[in-house]
Nucleic acid binder design. Structure first.
Ligand SMILES: [Mn+2]
Ligand SMILES: [Mn+2]
Ligand SMILES: [Zn+2]
Ligand SMILES: [Zn+2]
Lengths: 171, 171
DNA sequence: CTCCTACCTGCGAATCATTCGCAAGTAGGT
DNA sequence: ACCTACTTGCGAATGATTCGCAGGTAGGAG
């Protein structure tokens, strides 16, 4: 699904200038990947971008698509759907509640809010289908991570080191 | 991180009775996995549950932990953090917006809402750290999936068949 | 209480998405 | 036109999750 040419153009402009400003080389594959992504409204996966591109450019590799998408993500030019954690996380609390998610370490904490629960689903969302639930995700940096801050730059790999799976047991 | 014994007990009760009602065998490993999960407040991964359990029960396999957690999920006794899609999805729209996510096929659509944007972050969430953004996810079944409905039961594998990566191109 | 059997479990191999390592290719400054 | 650091395309490596299968057991029948 594609968006209007006007908006696509605006995005391409923003992306190319930002990428150029970052001192990154503008290769044909990058330009095409930008174009493909800038025109889409369906939040494509790397694979989807790759497939779409493959018709026009049979030589691009899936790996390059991944590298380019992460490049854009690191530059803040695209977002990913929901902060990705390394693996699925399970929640035994069935009562209606919401989450605070630490972008650094993946810590997740519950919180309740009568105000949020009272919210009505906007018609702009309801038009897409039958709504079953709404969930608010507050993203930020947990106090634990804020303390031991500073170090690294800000790229995508600034997560807690791979070590013990039992990390994010802050607090 | 564990929650109070009172609440843990309540959850164990709910889980065991529901599982029994579903005509599923209550094995020791299942009971222990239930116990471990019911007591946790940190949204553990299967691996985390496995690790924690490994101390008490050195013989349980990670695979059984996975199978049990998905069993609970299918019975609606636990939830997973954010509807899992098969892979990362990228979003080129930087303007503040929210998402409607189809639980069946993974379709994701943008929607805006002044009302939602106006929301203040509740203190109950802000206490966990520095908030950077809040995002509302409305989950439901898209009109496309609603149309071709009925068929299958309701388990975790009722997603669109694996086929072409370019699915969820509904509408 | 014992017996049976459909349902479980532990394992090692198989999948899948994503990432690495490296040799060959090229954007872009000089 | 010429360098060379940054990029690519691959095929192999990873890491999370799932499968296939052979042996084990919950729990209902007798
Ligand atoms: Mn929760
Ligand atoms: Mn979006
Ligand atoms: Zn953190
Ligand atoms: Zn759908």
């Amino acid at each position: 699904m594609k968006i209007g040419a006007r908006e696509t153009e605006r995005r391409m402009e923003r992306i190319t200038s930002a990428v150029k400003a970052a001192g990154v080389k503008l290769t044909i594959q990058r330009l095409e990947i930008f174009r493909e992504l800038a025109a889409s409204a369906d939040h494509p996966s790397a694979e989807a971008v790759f497939e779409a591109l493959h018709a026009r450019m049979p030589t691009v590799s899936l790996d390059t698509v991944y590298r380019t998408l992460w490049l854009l993500t690191d530059l803040g030019l695209v977002h990913t759907l929901g902060p990705r954690h390394e693996s699925v996380r399970f929640d035994p609390k069935l009562e209606r509640h919401h989450h605070f998610v630490c972008l650094r370490c993946g810590l997740v904490r519950d919180f309740e809010s009568a105000e949020l629960d009272a919210l009505r689903v906007p018609a702009s969302a309801a038009r897409f289908g039958r709504v079953e639930a709404t969930h608010v995700e507050v993203r930020g940096v947990c106090s634990g991570c804020a303390r031991k801050q500073g170090r690294k730059s800000g790229g995508r790999n600034d997560k807690e080191p791979k070590g013990g799976k039992g990390s994010n047991e802050h607090e």
